[in-house]
Amino acid sequence: MFQVAAHPSSFAMHGHGHHQTMSTSTAGIQLPRTLSRPAFAEVSRDSIMAVAPELANVPAEYIRRGLRPKAHQMLAGISCMSSSHMPTTMTKSHVPRVMTVPVRSSSSSHATYPTHVLAVASSKSSGNEHVFMFPVHNIIIAAQCSALPRLPPSSAVPSSALHLPVIPLSLPSPAAFKVLHGYLYNHSLEAVFKSLFPLPSGFTQGLSHYTVQSTLSSGSLLHQLSTYLCSSSGGSLQALTGHAAHVKELWQDMVALGLHDPELWDTLDLAWEITLGALNIAASNH
């Protein structure tokens, strides 16, 4: 199994180590003031060459930008897979080394089929638990996740079925990886926020990196969004702590994968600021 260590390996709600903490003393909650970003590490050139030799001399950032317009073809390829043969979850002990998945004809003649399946288990538990199955394209992983080992080769794609190598992967939060799996293809900041907690649709709809950055620098906007989140959570410290847990699980998986996307990191920072602000507002009302 590819064991990817999170950094830190566990996130207790105690804010220790080198992190600054802020305290909502009423509930006895302490959280890190910021979610630290690991040092940037570019993806492996060997990993890219292994899946796309023709891109050997192309800068990684250029490859990533070039993948964005092709995402709809890749997602079309995933949607062509027979759901009866491609379960979303599976008992860990029953995960095969290769999955044979029939494919349906696509309305798009340019559908690009996935090359592998990631069987994602939680690094926080062991035993015979369920794992989550995610079809992926090797170049999507190789070009964006610097901490993952090089994927093994996949066989040639026949016309009626795919034979996909299954890669066991251990991450802090399989549920958070579901969000990241979508982002690796569609790069939708709106979808990331909607997966974390409720915000006004006028803010999240078509959310851009520019809006994320400008909101981070506006104390009044941050306060408005924190107030909205606190209100929509009924002022419940328990509910807001749950939202904070979702954000930190996303953070842990991003670090573990070596995902250094600036737009996503700024969005994570914004989500954390809004959540901490909502917690402080709720704590002051208790």
Rank of each mutant, 00 (worst) to 15 (best):
Q3C: 13
V4N: 04
H7C: 10
H7K: 14
F11M: 09
G15H: 04
H16R: 04
M22C: 02
T24K: 02
S25H: 11
I29Y: 03
R37P: 11
A41E: 08
S47R: 13
V51M: 07
P53V: 09
V58I: 12
A60Y: 08
Y62V: 05
L67S: 09
A71P: 14
Q73W: 05
A76W: 04
C80F: 08
S82F: 12
S84P: 09
S84H: 14
M86G: 07
T88G: 15
M90G: 07
T91G: 08
V103Y: 00
V103T: 13
S107Y: 11
A111T: 11
T112I: 15
Y113L: 15
H116G: 01
A119S: 07
V120M: 03
A121R: 02
S122E: 08
S122I: 08
S123F: 03
E129P: 04
F132W: 13
M133T: 03
F134P: 02
F134M: 06
P135G: 09
H137Q: 12
H137C: 10
H137M: 10
I139F: 11
A143M: 12
C145P: 11
L148T: 10
P149I: 13
R150L: 15
S155P: 10
A156E: 13
P158N: 12
S160W: 09
A161Y: 07
A161E: 08
L164Y: 09
P165G: 05
P165H: 11
V166N: 06
P168W: 05
P168G: 04
P168F: 07
L169E: 01
L169D: 00
P172V: 05
P172N: 09
A175S: 14
A175P: 11
A176L: 05
F177E: 03
V179E: 02
G182N: 15
Y185V: 13
S188F: 07
A191E: 14
F193T: 00
L199W: 02
T204G: 01
T204R: 03
G206Y: 06
L207Q: 00
L207R: 01
Y210C: 13
Y210I: 11
T215G: 04
S217Q: 14
S218F: 08
G219Q: 11
L222H: 07
L229G: 03
C230R: 08
L237P: 03
L240C: 04
L240P: 00
L240R: 02
H243Q: 04
H243A: 00
H243E: 00
V247H: 00
K248P: 01
K248Y: 06
E249S: 14
W251D: 04
L257G: 03
G258M: 06
L264W: 00
L268A: 04
E273H: 09
L276F: 03
A278F: 09
A278P: 12
N280Q: 15
I281C: 04
A283Y: 01
S284T: 10
N285K: 15
